[in-house]
Design a protein around this nucleic acid. Structure first.
Length: 502
RNA sequence: UCCCCGAUAGCUCAAUGGUAGAGCGUCCGGCUGUUAACCGGCAGGUUGUAGGUUCGAGUCCUACUCGGGGAGCCA
């Protein structure tokens, strides 16, 4: 590793001669002066090379520095408001370590397909760099939270026999001639472990072969799952609440500037405080069928229709202006770029508007017994100003292992956590059925082969206790906290239906 | 599996069924305060694939491929 200084230390190295190693972000040569923006993995700073006798030997090199060329620069840094990153380096020496020609990701707009085919380069870009750093912080905080609260890490297998939660779509793997599946949860294994360690968690990649192409789905994603012995449903929800608060607090503490850079409304995150709302499925169903979704969606419709008209007017204005004489080329470019953005927003708005009646219909015609749909979750979360736990779903839409409510055999003691601002479900969890007879009955009811679950039934034969846990999807959480439109930016190498390169 | 949308230069996008264009980027030249934003110039195309309609198809029709969004399902 180099002994070079780092950009993040520049505030403490003002005036000193330092050597930085990194990459050129962009270069603006102009006659006898060169500005180039430079990043080193710890931050960005602007470098300036003036043409003098001292810089003569490398001035021409500086002038032709291309995007993403790897360079080592020496000079003195000082604060500079006009510079990206807040610091400016006056370069006294410069060497190119690795050239870069025709770097494909330019400062101009690119399509999403183009960028994901170049994901290996894309995450050098500022915005992606910030997101992945926040992801790293969130993962660090996940581990800290559980380690600091007496949970023992238990790694669960990725190759799993067919028996999972039941009707899930899993990836099949040839395991020495026998079929096994990529795990979609470590939960059953954790239940066994929590009878040994009391509080346990697993954390790793998990796989779903669902053919979902939406902004909320990946086929490979990271999930953390705690499991606690001698715990009731409300005990588990308490842990989930503290846990989510700790994640948000940590990101607010360590990434204030990053969040602003991402355009995140930080005040929305600052509202994430205990207690979250806790409503039952029945209440959610009443809420959906009541007057409030209609009011919400009608307000939406009005607001979106108004915005649409605004966009159309703005586009017309810009197009008119482009036709007039005396407009500078760069002004035309800027206008054209704005028109493209506006049209994109318009397309999204139009689709949202078209979906509103459908979502309203789904909500108002919601019948007891069904699972909450994505749009239903969005409506519920938008009708609350903090995260919402929805509990006690109908038994027959949920997994066999969930604990039957003792006062109502039609529902189970489960919960989903809906993130605010319409980000949807980030946690699913439940109390587990600890009663041998009830569990066995459910296994048969679901048509699952009992022999595959004998080991699991053992947990109910030998000192069974009330217990429960939950799973939190890391990418959905990152997307929520960073305010990302699409979950695929929340993971370094997204795996989605039809996409597995690079 | 179903529904909607899309594919034109390296990139982002134009082009009433009638000669395929612009900007950016690249490269070259100029510029001492740049930041997606200066000026001038060069180069850049089998309009996703295969059929069809037509005097004529980037444009219309059919199928396919790939991509985007959504439903279902889910973290």
């Amino acid at each position: 590793m180099s002994k070079h200084a780092e950009i993040r230390d520049l505030p403490r190295r003002v005036g000193a001669v330092v050597t930085l190693s990194g990459w050129v972000v962009k270069n603006r040569p102009s006659g006898k002066l060169v500005f180039f923006e430079f990043r080193d993995g710890t931050g960005v700073c602007q470098c300036v090379v003036e043409r003098t006798e001292k810089t003569e030997s490398f001035f021409d090199t500086a002038k032709h520095l291309s995007q993403e060329a790897a360079v080592v620069v020496t000079g003195t840094a000082r604060p500079e408001d006009r510079a990206a990153g807040g610091f400016e380096m006056h370069v006294t020496d410069l060497a190119v370590v690795g050239a870069s020609t025709d770097y494909p990701i330019t400062p101009k707009p690119h399509g999403i397909d183009f960028l994901f085919k170049r994901r290996h380069l894309w995450f050098r870009s500022q915005r992606q760099w910030i997101i992945l750093r926040i992801r790293a912080t969130i993962i660090d905080q996940i581990r800290r939270f559980f380690n600091d609260n007496g949970f023992v890490l238990i790694d669960t297998p990725i190759f799993a026999p067919a028996a999972g939660e039941g009707s899930q779509t899993l990836f099949k793997v040839d395991y020495f001639g026998e079929p096994v599946y990529l795990a979609q949860t470590g939960q059953l294994y954790l239940e066994a472990a929590c009878m040994a360690h009391r509080k346990v968690y697993c954390f790793g990649p998990t796989f779903r072969a669902e053919k979902s192409k939406t902004r909320r789905h990946l086929t490979e994603f990271w999930m953390v799952e705690p499991e606690i012995a001698y715990a009731s449903l409300s005990d588990v929800i308490d842990v989930a609440e503290d846990f989510v608060c700790s994640l948000v607090d940590r990101v607010l503490r360590d990434h204030q500037r990053d969040l602003i850079e991402l355009g995140r409304d930080v005040s929305q995150l600052e509202r994430i405080r205990k207690p979250f709302y806790r409503i039952r499925y029945d209440d959610a169903a009443d809420l959906l069928r009541g007057p409030r979704p209609k009011e919400l969606l009608e307000r939406d419709l009005a607001a979106k229709t108004a915005r649409l008209a605004e966009l159309d007017q703005r586009v017309a204005e810009l197009e008119d202006r482009q036709k007039q004489g005396g407009v500078k080329q760069w002004e035309k470019d800027k206008a054209a770029a704005e028109v493209i953005d506006l049209r994109e927003e318009r397309g999204e708005l139009a689709e949202q508007i078209a979906n509103i009646p459908h979502h309203l219909k789904l909500a108002t015609e919601f019948t007891w017994g069904g699972d909450l749909g994505g749009s239903d979750e969005t409506i519920i979360s938008r009708l609350h100003d903090r995260p919402v736990f929805v509990t006690h779903y109908p038994k027959h839409v949920k997994a066999f292992y969930m604990r039957e409510a003792r006062d109502n055999a039609k529902v189970v003691e489960n919960f989903d956590l809906l993130a605010p601002e319409g980000f949807g479900e980030v946690i699913g969890g439940s109390a587990r059925e600890e009663d041998y007879d009830r569990l066995l009955h459910r296994i048969h009811e679901e048509g699952l082969p009992q022999e595959d679950y004998e080991w699991y039934l053992d947990l109910r034969r030998y000192g069974s206790v009330p217990h429960g846990g939950f799973g939190l999807g890391v990418e959905r959480t990152v997307a929520w906290i960073c305010n990302l439109k699409h979950i695929r930016e929340a993971i370094p190498y997204p795996r989605m239906m039809g996409r597995f390169y690079p």
